Simulated scan of single mutants.
Amino acid sequence: MGLEKVIKCIKENKRFLITTHINPEGDAIGSVIALALILKKLGKSVVVCNTDPVPRNLQFLPYSKKIKQAKEINNRFDAMFVLDCGSKDRVGLFKNGAMPMPPPIVNIDHHITNEKFGYINYIDAKATATGDIIYRLAKALKIKIDKNIATAIYTTLLTETGSFRYSNTNSGILRISAELIDAGINPWRIGQQIYETNTFQRLKLLGILLDEMETDSTGKVAWVTITSAHYAATNTTAEDVEDFINFPRSIKGVEIAVLFRESKEDLYKISFRSRGTIDVTRLALKFGGGGHKYAAGCTVKGSLNEVKEKVLQAAVEEMERKIVKKEKTLESLNP
C-alpha cells in the first residue's frame, strides 16, 4: 500500500525535494542519489539538499556534487522525500523537528523505530537498507537501472551490510547486487573508494581511541569515547569516526559495543552495536533514540561521566535481563 501511494505521488507531481538525516552515511547518500536519478529519468524536477556535506569517502558517487548543503531551502516543491530517517528530529531541514507545510512529506525508511511522520509513509523494517526499497521503487516504476543508479544502490547495500558480513545479508540482497554488477558497476572500485581512502589524521584518531578503549568487568560490554579534544589533537571531525564502533564490537566475547561521541558541550551522540544476542533498540529507546535490532543510537545530555554512567548501566541491565530471560526459557524446557 505504501509503495502504491509513493508511485501515485510521483506520477501526479513534477517538482521534488529530496533529503535525509543529519550526518548521512552510505545508505542515506546512496538512496537520495538513486532516487534523484530515477525521478530525473521520469522527467521530474529534482533538488537534493542536506544540512551536512557528503562524506569524503562518498564523494565519488555520481550526482554527489549536485547535492546542495543548506540549513533551509525556500524553493517551492510539490512533495518532499525524506529517506532513511527514523525521526523527524533528525531531519536537518526541519527546524527543531517542525515539519514544513506544504509540501507533503513522503517518508521512506527501513528503521523499525520509524515514527511515520510523513503524509505518505513507506516503511519496511525487513528491508536490508533504504536503498533496497529504492531499488524496488525503480522496478515498480519500470525504470531501467543504469550504471549510475546501480552504483548508488550498490553503495547502500555494501555499507549497510558491512560488506555483506552482517545478519541483514540475505540471498535477495546478493541477487540484487549481482544485477547491479551486470549493469556495469565496478565493485572493487566502489569498495576501494569507501574503505580505502583514509586520511593519515583519521588513522591517528583511530589509534588513540583503540589505546583508550575500555570494557566492563564481564568483558561483554566494550566502548570507545570521542571528545572535542580528540578532534583537536588529530585535526579530525565527526565524519572521521564513521564505523569506528565496529572495533569494540569485533572483540571476542563482547555482546554490546558503545561509542560515545561529544556533539557539543554536555551533549553526546551514542551509538550501539550488538553481536546478535542483544536487541540494542531497547537501549536506544530508553534514551529517546531508535534504529535497528543490532545497530541503534540516541543522544544524551549531561557531562561525560554522567552520560557514561547512565548508558553503561543500562547496557549492563539489558545484558542481565537477557541472561535471566534465557535461564527462564531453559527452566521451562527442563521442568
Rank of each mutant, 00 (worst) to 15 (best):
D146S: 10
L174T: 09
G253Q: 03
E4F: 08
K293Y: 10
E212S: 12
D211W: 09
V280W: 10
L42H: 07
T51G: 15
D52Q: 10
R56C: 03
E320I: 04
D243H: 04
D89P: 00
D132P: 01
T197A: 09
G290F: 03
G191P: 12
V91F: 10
F60A: 01
K116G: 07
V316A: 13
G184D: 02
L37W: 01
L35G: 00
I173Q: 01
I226G: 01
I145S: 02
G92E: 10
I145T: 03
G30E: 02
N13K: 14
N74P: 00
F244K: 00
Q201I: 07
F260Y: 08
A150W: 01
K322A: 10
V6N: 07
E179P: 00
F247Y: 13
K68D: 05
A222P: 01
E212R: 14
T237C: 06
I278N: 11
E309H: 15
F200L: 15
L157A: 08
P104K: 12
S45K: 10
N74S: 14
S274Q: 06
R189K: 15
F260M: 02
Y63W: 11
K264P: 02
S250E: 05
E115S: 15
V46Q: 07
R275Y: 01
L42D: 07
K286V: 04
F247K: 00
L210W: 04
D89W: 12
V221R: 06
E262F: 05
N75E: 15
G297E: 06
A222F: 03
F81G: 05
E160Y: 02
T197H: 12
L180T: 02
E212K: 14
G302L: 13
L61P: 08
I181C: 10
K66R: 13
N305V: 12
S217M: 13
G97K: 13
M213Q: 12
K139G: 04
S228K: 15
A129C: 02
R249K: 08
F16Q: 06
I173T: 05
S177I: 03
F81D: 05
R202A: 09
G43L: 06
V47A: 09
K325W: 05
M319S: 05
S263L: 04
I145V: 12
I181F: 09
P24S: 12
H110E: 07
E115W: 13
K269T: 01
K88P: 01
V91A: 09
P102W: 11
G162R: 03
A314Y: 09
T329S: 14
I176M: 13
A284I: 02
F260W: 05
S177R: 03
D279R: 09
I251T: 02
N114E: 12
I67D: 11
I7L: 14
G276V: 08
G162A: 09
A79M: 11
I38G: 04
I105Q: 11
Q59T: 13
Y195L: 14
D27R: 00
E242H: 00
L141N: 11
Q69K: 14
K269Y: 00
M1W: 06
A150I: 04
I108T: 08
V224D: 00
N121L: 04
K8P: 00
G43C: 05
I226L: 12
R136V: 07
